[in-house]
Design a protein around this nucleic acid. Structure first.
Lengths: 351, 351
DNA sequence: ATCACCGATGGGAGCGCTCCCACGGTACCT
DNA sequence: AGGTACCGTGGGAGCGCTCCCATCGGTGAT
């Protein structure tokens, strides 16, 4: 496939120098051709390309990295144990988008797990050695020191799911606010009036935005927000169960529930069923994530889909720009960049 | 975490030279300390280590790679689309073993998918550029050109699941022969005498070994091998169904089935059930892989477990040796290395 | 015609490290 | 005392590339 047979006489791989000699030009010119510089005449370029093909020349990455002070590699850092990585389709979707967007690039993607302390140690060392040009951060907890470390090292980084409205890193997010709004508006349109919300972990920015969307949707409809209809969850099934129990107690007339995740909705459904409430007849239910759970729930769950794959693509786009600019977002001052991608409400029979 | 604050005066990262100056020694000595050479006095070593700590020195990988002509990276090549990678626990287990064995090494693991032609193209380019010191090959098809390419490029490689008895690459495998034997011996011990075998795809070496194990177990018991009891499958459920149908026709007195995979066993079970045969009362069933399917089948399926994680570990072991020897297995002549790891029969109620 | 200018090109000077040879010193042998 | 051996050490010579500056003609303006 690569390497058309003829090699440098010494048996080793051909070098720039050898290609230059073969093409009858200087080293600099070959370098320019290889790197697609426009400052080369067409004739010369053709000659060089011929020589490259004949010798089966492939640039030496290490030499290039040393001379140019870049690695042509970026890391996707997963601060979770590998198990979760394989278990959650989130990562697989994200990886698909990232891979696709990277595929017509010279950039190499490294997958780095940093679930255990030991692994985090290694990661720190790795970043300190500047072995990547940039970093993709997914599912980062609010108090994670990783983002700061990256800023300190001046390594460009893009985070999926900003930690706050004032996120210093370049970020990509789905429209949590809009997603929540669309869910609540959908329930309103179905005639529901006592719509409850089971939140996610409130230290997660996206969860807070979903609450905002919930509130605003009700307010815009002219309905007030009944605080007894808002219960805190934590994205888990158990949290959903507990929150639903409390809701049934303090607001027995609830006729719809918008949960901050599908798993939470599953927990709520369980409690509702035990309480004899039918879904969607008595209580309509909407989840978030549009995961496999949503599709397989009984009844199938209406849910807000996030464009994970597109988010992956967007992360790469932003990161490559940051890298090209050769400066991390932190030093970019006010021109920080945040992409927000639209969500989509997938309506099923639970609402 | 890394980098104790003090940096080289110039603001950039400290270099070997700077560490040497600080420690009052020569460049070569620092290099020796960094690389753990024993030819350094204890006092000198201590001084250098102090300087390294003070300056927060981290070796420049690119420079090292260029000078030493190695990359300190190995690739796990998955010749499948990413989807399958995430779907099959095989890969996740393998990765766990590989990661564990690599964790006290400086080696960096790269995960490379080569499912599409485009990806394979990139991979070829990648290998031609010698961007890794070695390659781990998993789930390679018999006619894949990848192994040859690696030999040609003289890149050390270890394959899991040799392609034939004469595999030229260093290989790791589970004991397919022994696994099959143990399954059949188990059925014999349970008093079964008309034991059928649904094979895997016969172009897969491991599948052929399983047939060998099946035959020898019967022969050693003094039973002949009835060719009507051997039916070809292809590791799939559908293949299992078809094979089982044929078996019921040509050998209606069958009282046990050893299938080359759990999925195949699932297909067979279906046909058996439709034919009114009870499992295990009328026909005992044994599968291979000990996958999730086996545990959740009705009745739970006896199956042969392969030590995937250990195989991952073994692959790394062998690969690191090959790399240290700086020569691919192909040029090693007759001292090729093949590890074969034991399987384990997990007995459940299907037999 | 003259001169400033610009695009195309060649090649020196490193990038930070490893490898290896040469050096001085000490210990041990004859 | 002289020789041999070996250890710990310093530092030159690259590894193959990019960056950048100097150079060389050719061009259009004056």
């Amino acid at each position: 496939m690569a390497g058309h047979g003829a090699r440098g006489r010494s048996g080793g791989r051909p070098t720039l120098e050898e290609v230059a000699a073969r093409a009858g030009v200087g080293r600099g010119t070959v370098s320019r051709v290889i790197n697609g510089s426009p400052r080369v005449s067409d004739a010369t370029r053709a000659a060089v390309e011929a020589a490259v093909a004949e010798l089966g020349y492939v640039p030496n990455t290490a030499a290039r990295a040393l001379a140019a002070n870049r690695t042509d590699a970026i890391a996707l850092v997963v601060p979770e144990p590998e198990t979760r990585f394989f278990a959650e389709p989130y990562f697989s979707d994200m990886l698909k988008g990232v891979g696709a967007e990277l595929s017509d690039t010279e950039m190499q993607l490294l997958l780095i797990f940093a679930g255990s302390d030991r692994e985090r140690q290694r990661l720190a060392q790795y970043l300190a050695a500047h072995r990547v040009d940039g970093v993709l951060l997914v599912s980062v907890h609010a108090d994670d020191p990783l983002p700061d470390m990256l800023s300190q090292l001046e390594i460009p980084a893009v985070i999926s799911g900003p930690r706050s409205a004032g996120e210093t890193l370049t970020s990509v997010d789905s429209d949590n606010y809009g997603g929540a709004r669309s869910a609540v508006e959908h329930l309103l349109a179905r005639g529901r009036r006592r719509i409850a919300h089971i939140t996610g972990r409130m230290d997660v920015y996206g969860a807070r935005r979903r609450v905002d969307g919930y509130r605003d949707a009700l307010l815009d409809e002219g309905l007030g927000v009944d605080e007894f209809l808002i219960e805190q969850g934590d994205f888990t099934e158990e949290g959903g169960r507990r929150a639903m129990s409390r809701l049934l107690e303090q607001a027995p007339d609830v006729d719809a529930v918008f949960a901050a995740s599908d798993v939470t909705a599953a927990g709520a459904r369980q409690v509702l069923r035990e309480a004899g409430r039918r879904i969607p007849d008595d209580v309509a239910l909407v989840g978030y994530d549009d995961s496999a759970i949503a599709r397989h729930m009984d009844p199938p769950l209406t849910s807000v889909r996030q464009p994970i794959e597109e988010m992956g693509r967007a992360m790469i786009d932003l990161l490559l720009t940051d890298i090209a600019d050769r400066r991390p977002a932190a030093s970019r001052g006010l021109e920080r960049r945040h992409a927000v991608l639209p969500t989509e409400l997938v309506v099923r029979t639970s609402s």
